[in-house]
Write a protein that binds this DNA or RNA. Structure first.
Lengths: 224, 224
DNA sequence: TTTTAATTACGTGTAAACACGTATTTTTTG
DNA sequence: CAAAAAATACGTGTTTACACGTAATTAAAA
């Protein structure tokens, strides 16, 4: 059942998942601005947890999910949603067209991937495409995918070593400029522990120094 | 004339300046959601240039301006607006509470600085405060300012030392992950020269390590 | 043309990051 | 409950970054 059967009068319900109220509001405005062919009902969640709770209680046709969110990340959230309710169409949203994010979201089960800088028209196009059972990528994302030849090899997996919550926390602190020692004091841990986390981050992400880590943090939207 | 005299029926007109439609929409929703005490009229501009054009033609009471935008940056835009129409109150908007950005916007002439992750309530508070002729900072921003002792010395100017083209070039290479030695080889220079450039960058930008430099590079859009 | 800003470069020392291991404890999950 | 994953921590050594100076040459601006 790939195609979404929308009969007359059926109201398509969409769940917007993003930790920024501003982004949710922006999405909502765009979605509601051109509801000629699709009757939309929009709900919001400020976190992956809230999203899962809402999805457990209500029936949604689709979810629009930001890549980076505090507790539960975008890919994690997508993963749980598809395991829980495989019928829900998922459009991934991100600030950056980083290959790893695209891969992460798509592999988790998203049906499309668009950047936040798209306009209203393209957003609606993406929503329609995904709702109809197809896959949508915005331009630069599509280019990246082709460029990386991801369309050929199905699931080779780019890095896919999972970064643990603790590591993510450390990564963020590294990116804001703290030294291992400062992070250790902040988290009440040994400096050597942070040393290890840092090393593991470098290995898992395939990076070689602090600059790389900061870039990664940026791209994961850990800085705000 | 510090206080803004708003008489009954006066409609306060606000110009939202951000290159992301989504952000502008989000702001608009937030602003219009609680227009009990202030009657707002909201207009938008997707760039600094467009903003200046609109400001030249219409009278605005305030502008809400994102720090980073493609062509004309936030501070540049602010600078031109205040020189052009000093009466316009300006609220600076940013994703990050980096000291350099706060300084840049405030020094350019902004009347307040808030992060994009604020909620509706705080946004309105900020708007009201700024419109009434006072200065507003969201929490983390205020902390940074106090921490840096910016409130004491009025216009000592934190960085405002100009970053030279060569330094910019080095900064970019640092951010993409090269070591001083690698940069030196790439530019056919001594390692010590790059050492100096790096040090000067740290001093001029008021940063303390590589992480800070990478963040700076990101914000200056040197990467992507 | 003089003065200023930019680019280049070195000396010396300390602090921090990076690389490679190993290893225990705690938490999660099948 | 057993197995796997995550979080904790240490040892040792090398490399790189950071801090504080000084200073010559070159390009740009007043």
């Amino acid at each position: 059942m790939e195609t979404n059967k929308r009969k007359h009068g059926h109201i398509t319900s969409v769940l917007l998942i993003d930790d920024h109220e501003m982004v949710r509001d922006g999405l909502k405005v765009m979605l509601l601005s051109l509801k000629k062919d699709i009757r939309l009902k929009v709900d919001e969640a400020a976190s992956g947890e809230e999203a899962l709770r809402k999805i457990a209680r209500n029936d949604f046709d689709m979810a629009i999910i930001d890549y980076q969110m505090p507790e539960l990340s975008g890919p994690e959230t997508v993963c749980r949603i598809v395991r829980f309710k495989p019928a829900i169409k998922i459009l991934a949203l991100s600030n950056y067209d980083e290959l790893a994010y695209i891969e992460g979201m798509m592999h988790a089960g998203a049906n499309g991937f668009v950047l936040k800088n798209i306009g209203c028209g393209e957003l609606l196009m993406a929503v329609r495409t995904v709702l109809s059972g197809n896959t949508y990528f915005c331009n630069s994302v599509a280019l990246k995918i082709i460029d990386a030849g991801l369309d050929k090899k199905p699931h080779t997996g780019i890095h896919h070593k999972t970064i643990t919550p603790r590591e993510l926390e450390v990564l963020r602190l590294i990116a804001v400029g703290l030294t291992n020692d400062e992070i250790a004091r902040k988290l009440f841990l040994s400096k050597r522990t942070i040393d290890t986390h840092r090393q593991n981050l470098l290995n898992k992400l395939g990076l070689k120094n602090t600059a790389g880590l900061v870039r990664a943090a940026y791209e994961m939207k850990l800085l705000d």
